[in-house]
Design a protein around this nucleic acid. Sequence first.
DNA 1: TCTGGGGTCCTAGGACCC
DNA 2: TCTGGGGTCCTAGGACCC
Length: 397
Amino acid sequence: MNSYFASVEQKCNPVLQGKPVVVCGYGRTIVVTASYEAREYGIKTGMTIPEAKKLCPNVIIVYGNIDKYIDTTLKIHQILLRFTDRVEPFSIDECFMDVTDVEKLFGDGLTIAKKIKQLIKEELGLNCSIGIGENKIIAKFASKLKKPDGLCKIEKEDIKNIFSLLSVRELQGIGIGKKIAEKLESIGILTAQQLGDANLDFLIKHFGILGYHLKKIGQGVDDSPVKIYDDKNYIKSFGHSHTLPTDTYDLNIIKSYILLMSEKVGVRLRKENMLGRTVSLMIRYEDFDSFSKQYTIKHYIRTGYEIYKIAEKIFNQILPLKKAVRLVGVSISNLIQDNKQPFLFNRLQKYYQLADMVDSINSKYGEFTVKPASLIIAEKFGILERCGIIGTSLIKK
DNA sequence: TCTGGGGTCCTAGGACCC
DNA sequence: TCTGGGGTCCTAGGACCC
């Protein structure tokens, strides 16, 4: 999708259409997505808000709503699935499709791509760019060539010519990041052609097992199949993190954020109908140095309070703090599906039923309309509002 | 108002078991 | 004790992606 979050916001709110818009997070934040109008002023993803305002004083700042984008993404998936079940989501706004087996039904790749662009435009009012190629690497590369609203096909026989001209930096975004690109340049590999032709042992010496993969990228080769949609594509982990309004040593504030993040993870866990048993706490300090530690327990858990108790235990181990804390994050992994077997202990059973009931109220009236009393301290500090949680006003009514 | 938030995968080493 | 070999699970940190 092109300028995805900003385009969704512009579609939802006509006032924003045709204007420079940036979508950002809450608190100390950056530009997450800039609309094409904003990009004309030089605004780019990753800039701070003051930087964006300096480039364009009239830029409209919109606080992002991830649920809205996920909802739109699921609608896009449904459009793609009308053609084939070989639809593999790659990120919130990208999918791979393998249309090899359905060309007889719907026409060749180019025809299908045109149809998809038309459907997404008609039904959702959004533009996208589609790349067509022999494999995922080529298709992804093609999709980046023409934006916005692009359509580009790279023929098999042209791969070698196109890749031979590319610098390794231009391969960024298809498996090669900044660090790898720098390292490749430092050992004298400057182009995709050189990477593809490089001696395998030489690459393995410098990059380990990644060397195999790098050589293939250089050659434009990728054998990985496009997965069938939702084919046991279970989530491996999920978490929430937040940058504090100011760096702090205040344990009450830090623990309130840890609790809030834990509760959010718990809500998500139940929404996905999963259980987890590894909790990870991430702390970023004022100097951007970060600490993370995880703890695995024997039994599976599913509520924010259980998650918090483990995260808090990890946090207590790093006290006293030597540096002010900038960000806290809590995540859970080692996940399994919750088959809703009754629990051995009645006390836990009731506690879990309570969590489900709170979820059903909050899904109707807003996030954290009903919440643990211990989060009231977070409310007192204004933490909920700063994290974009607005459900609290309803309970007062 | 310098630097967000959500993920996946890999690695090297340690704990532990037989 | 001049201590083998095979295996699983766990962990902290880093690279990478959007």
